[in-house]
Computed example of a mutant assay.
Amino acid sequence: MTAPTKDRSEYWRKNIGIITGCLVVWALVSIGAGILFAPMLNGFSIGGYPLGFWFAQQGSIYIFIILIFYYAWRMNRLDREFDVHEE
């Protein structure tokens, strides 16, 4: 079950790529939609609240939870691809 060094480095390169992608999405939603683009988004509303405020208070949390499930699903696929899964 020990992978060669080349496979190990490729596995970690892909793992870091997944993590980086998730962090970029989360940053864009939380900082971008909640702070930087809030004035533009506040023209729309969800449940009576401005959309920029909603992203700052709720949207980034929902995206974070979705990203947790996405990361778990994607890492399970990556583990199977490199034969390092736990099953």
Rank of each mutant, 00 (worst) to 15 (best):
19 I>C: 10
5 T>S: 12
12 W>I: 13
11 Y>K: 07
44 F>P: 00
30 S>K: 12
25 V>E: 04
40 M>R: 06
50 P>I: 03
22 C>N: 09
20 T>A: 15
27 A>R: 11
68 I>T: 06
30 S>F: 11
47 G>Y: 09
29 V>D: 06
49 Y>L: 08
4 P>C: 12
70 Y>V: 13
55 F>M: 06
37 F>E: 05
28 L>E: 07
52 G>R: 04
87 E>I: 06
64 F>H: 10
70 Y>Q: 03
48 G>F: 04
59 G>E: 08
77 R>E: 14
81 E>F: 07
9 S>T: 15
10 E>S: 11
31 I>H: 10
40 M>P: 00
57 Q>A: 12
31 I>M: 08
27 A>Q: 09
42 N>W: 04
73 W>Y: 14
36 L>F: 08
53 F>R: 04
22 C>F: 07
82 F>E: 02
20 T>L: 15
41 L>D: 02
50 P>E: 15
84 V>N: 00
6 K>Q: 11
19 I>R: 07
82 F>D: 03
5 T>A: 14
35 I>E: 06
36 L>W: 11
38 A>N: 01
3 A>F: 00
40 M>T: 06
40 M>Y: 08
22 C>I: 11
74 R>C: 03
49 Y>S: 08
29 V>E: 05
36 L>D: 02
84 V>H: 00
32 G>V: 10
50 P>Q: 13
74 R>Y: 07
37 F>W: 14
73 W>A: 13
62 Y>K: 04
22 C>S: 11
6 K>G: 08
16 I>H: 12
22 C>M: 10
11 Y>I: 05
62 Y>W: 14
43 G>E: 13
26 W>D: 07
10 E>Q: 10
3 A>M: 01
62 Y>F: 14
9 S>H: 12
76 N>E: 13
57 Q>W: 08
82 F>C: 02
71 Y>L: 11
87 E>R: 10
30 S>E: 12
23 L>Y: 13
67 L>T: 02
40 M>A: 11
43 G>L: 07
54 W>S: 01
79 D>I: 01
48 G>S: 05
28 L>G: 15
23 L>K: 08
7 D>P: 01
44 F>D: 06
84 V>I: 10
39 P>T: 15
60 S>L: 04
44 F>E: 11
36 L>M: 07
24 V>D: 05
